[in-house]
Amino acid sequence: MRRVTLKATGLARVLPGAVPVTLVRDISLEVTAGEFVAITGPSGSGKSSLLYLLGLLDRPSAGSVEVDGQPTADMSGDQLAALRLAKLGFVFQFHFLLPEFSAAENVMVPLQRAGRLDSRAIAEWAAGLLAMLGLADAADKRPDQLSGGQRQRVAIARALANDPLVLLADEPTGSLDSVNARIVWESFADLAHKQQKTVIVVTHNAAFAAAADRRVHLVDGRIVSDRPATA
């Protein structure tokens, strides 16, 4: 039986206000290591909100999230940050690379923050990640010297820097051309299948979603279908 890396139970997120807005409701989900999951749905269906809840960036109004068997409901902000640093990796639609740092330095940021390796090992590890994503020649370039696809792959390398259990990506191919989008998508598939990472990707692209192992479809904040993508 595969290891459950992420488990959501009865998740709901309501934005308070004069007219409360429900982003997601009653969502229960289990994802295992090596699984490549695509979350799909129309705009406003709560895909990104669900991803942020699963990634511990947002706190649920109801329900709970467990990461690698650890309940997170009672954790402080700093504890959640430490858990994100150790076990989760994020990729967003925009790369959000630090503009003053080179590609390699951007990848080294989470490694240096974690402080588990010495500076030489950190540099070697970052170089290895960039090489794995086909960016060996771009290590010393700043983000403004890279193409859109290269930037997004640097962002993926950064998300993988601390060897996370779970990689969460929010529309990672949304700002890329079709060639670069396919390269990025294939990278995710490789990470899940070859490195046994849990990869959860929000996407609008039906073709890409079909290439995942599992497709979770949301409408109005609820899961309306959860089945193998190829089915």
Binding site: G55, L57, D78, A81, R84, L98, R158
Partner: peptide
Amino acid sequence: ARDIAILKALGFAERD
């Protein structure tokens, strides 16, 4: 603000 967001997403604490 974007840098702050990504740093927090990467696991930087508020005190950082």
